[in-house]
């Protein structure tokens, strides 16, 4: 079994004129439309009263949890980072949970999707950093504590983003792959357990991905925290290692 066969980028669903729409883009759209419709349906009949519908309650819990998490990591005000980091979390976790639905192909299983998300984070870090601290203030962190560390800082940023992209892709893809392999080897019972495990790791990785994105952004925006970036990186790696 080749890896290419697994990559959703290779699965062409249909064509729109010249453009071939593959599974990654198709299911991304499905997820996007689903999320927007659900959000719209619930928020449409939303109220500020004390009595609220269970659906609204669920959404409020999710949004509030994300907000609190962002605030805990150091995003202040949380509303500024909320759309970006929150969307990463919701998009990834939705894809990873829907992965157990037969026929659904998780877009996060494609390295292209995770690379796109990692790129977004890679760009979001200087974007938020510069908007919060100014260009010079942001650039200064590359030469701290000494200008000697400049290349290391640059390489650190790049490798960090690369790891960011590969981590998510690898996990989702491996989960899918292990599932496929096990179905071939042991058709009964065991694959189900493995799928459950995949579901668990999928949720955890959605969380990790979003938290790491926020940590990177926070490290770029906070003035006091220029140097501890590496430590955070180590801590993140430890966290990731534990999760894996």
């Amino acid at each position: 079994m080749e890896i290419t066969e697994i990559t959703p980028d290779e699965m062409i669903m249909f064509h729109i004129g010249e453009l071939a729409i593959n599974a990654t883009i198709f299911w991304s759209w499905v997820v996007m439309i689903g999320l927007v419709i659900v959000s719209w349906l619930i928020t449409r009949s939303m109220t500020s009263e004390l009595e609220i519908s269970p659906a609204q309650n669920l959404l409020e819990v999710i949004v509030k949890s994300i907000r609190d998490q962002i605030k805990e990591i150091g995003g202040d005000p949380p509303e500024l980072y909320m759309p970006f980091v929150g969307t990463i979390f919701i998009y990834v976790i939705t894809c990873n949970i829907l992965d157990i639905v037969p026929g659904f192909v998780a877009p996060t299983g494609s390295i292209s999707t995770t690379a796109a998300l990692a790129l977004c984070v890679f760009i979001a870090v200087p974007y938020y950093g510069i908007s919060q601290r100014g260009l010079i203030g942001y650039m200064r962190r590359y030469v701290e504590p000494t200008p000697v560390l400049l290349p290391f800082n640059i390489v650190g940023d790049l490798s960090r983003s690369l790891a960011h992209a590969v981590r998510l892709f690898g996990n989702v893809m491996s989960g899918t792959m292990i599932g496929a392999l096990l179905i071939m080897l042991v058709p009964f019972f065991f694959p189900v357990v493995m799928r459950l495990l995949t579901l668990l790791t999928g949720v955890i990785h959605a969380y990790i991905f979003a938290v790491l994105a926020m940590v990177f952004i926070a490290s770029g925006t906070e003035v006091q925290r220029g140097a501890p970036e590496k430590e955070e990186g180590d801590a993140d790696d430890d966290l990731v290692d534990d999760a894996i």
Binding site: S28, T43, Y91
Partner: peptide, 23 residues
Amino acid sequence: QIVNFLILVWLLKHFLYGPITNA
């Protein structure tokens, strides 16, 4: 996917975070 993601960010901001936060 980047474009998709940015669109999703914008959509959720208008349909989810905004209303929920306001409420």
